[in-house]
Amino acid sequence: MENLELEILFQDEFFIAVNKPAGMLVHRTNIAFEENVLIAERLLREQTGKKVYPLHRIDRPTSGVLVFGLSSEAASLVQPLFPTDDVKKYYLTVVRGYMSENHGIIDHPLKKKLYGDLQDAKSEYWSISQNEIQIASTSRYPTSRYSLLKVHPHTGRMHQIRRHLAHDRHYVIGDSTHGDNRQNHFFKNTFGMENLLLHAWQFEFVHPFNKEPIKLQSRIPDYFIDICKKLGLSVPI
C-alpha cells in the first residue's frame, strides 16, 4: 500500500478529481483509529506534491469520483453549489427487488446525522437493469430479484441513498448500517462478497472560473461488475 497511487480522472490548475477505492477515507476523522488507514487527501497530497481541499465526501465503503480543490478559494467557490443544479452526482447501486417504476423520486425527510431534526431529502433513480435469479436468498421465496439503479441525490444528507432505498425496502446490497443482514449474509456465503454495492459513477459541475461544464466518470470496480454478471444485471459501459 506504500506505493498506492490514486487514479486521476481530471486535473487543471484549480481542481483535481480521483477515483476513490472502497475502504478509503476522504480525510482523517475522529472515528477512524487504525494506524494504517488509507486517506485520500493525504495520498493525493503526497502523489501531487500539492495541498488539496475536499469539495465533498464519499462514505468510506463507497467507491468513485471524488473532487478536490487545489486552493481554498477554488474549493469555496464550488462547495456552495452542491444544493443547486450546478453540481450533479450520479451513483450506481445494486438493491434487493424490483422498483415499482423504472424512473422515480424518493422524497422523504431524513434526520440530521441519524438523529435530531428532520431535513428535506430527495433522491431520483433510474432502473438500469433487473433480473430474477433461481436461488433463494431467504426462506420466504424460492428465487431472488435484484435491480441495478442509477441514483441522483438532489440533497446531500448523511447516507442519503442508502437510507432512502432502505425506507422503500430496496436495501443496498452490502450495506451493514441500513441494509438487510440476511441479504448481506447471502452474498457473503454464496458469492464471497462483502463490499457495499454503491459507486459514485458520474460527477458534473459548472467550472466556477471558465464557466464550462465538467463531466467526470469513474471506472466501475471489478467486484461490482463481477457481482452484476453473476446476478444477470447489465452494467453500463
Rank of each mutant, 00 (worst) to 15 (best):
E194F: 03
R96Q: 07
A121T: 04
L196C: 02
F203G: 11
E101P: 00
S144M: 06
H167M: 06
E73V: 12
L198S: 10
G156W: 10
L81I: 02
L114W: 12
V78R: 08
S144I: 02
R163P: 04
R157N: 06
G116K: 08
K111D: 01
S139A: 13
K89N: 05
K88A: 12
L196I: 03
A136W: 12
D175T: 00
L110M: 05
L92A: 04
H167I: 02
P109T: 08
G116V: 06
D86V: 01
L92M: 05
E101R: 15
A136V: 07
S127T: 15
L114C: 05
L196V: 02
I135C: 07
T93V: 07
G156A: 05
E124Q: 14
G97H: 05
S129G: 03
E204K: 13
P80N: 05
Y91V: 01
A75H: 05
V87N: 04
S129I: 00
G192R: 08
P109V: 10
T177Q: 15
E101K: 15
D168L: 12
K89M: 10
G192K: 06
E204C: 13
F191D: 00
S100R: 15
R96D: 06
H154Y: 14
D85H: 14
V87L: 03
Y146N: 03
R162E: 09
F82L: 09
R169V: 11
Q160F: 04
R145Y: 11
K112L: 13
L198G: 10
R162V: 04
R140D: 13
D168V: 10
T93Y: 09
Y98Q: 04
L149M: 07
H185F: 14
Q183K: 00
F186Y: 15
F187L: 01
K188W: 14
A166Q: 03
T138C: 02
H164M: 08
R96P: 00
G97V: 01
K112A: 11
L77N: 09
V95H: 02
T177N: 14
N189G: 06
V95F: 06
T84P: 02
H199C: 02
G179E: 09
T190P: 01
Y91A: 02
R162T: 01
Y171N: 05
L198N: 09
V95S: 04
G179F: 09
M158I: 04
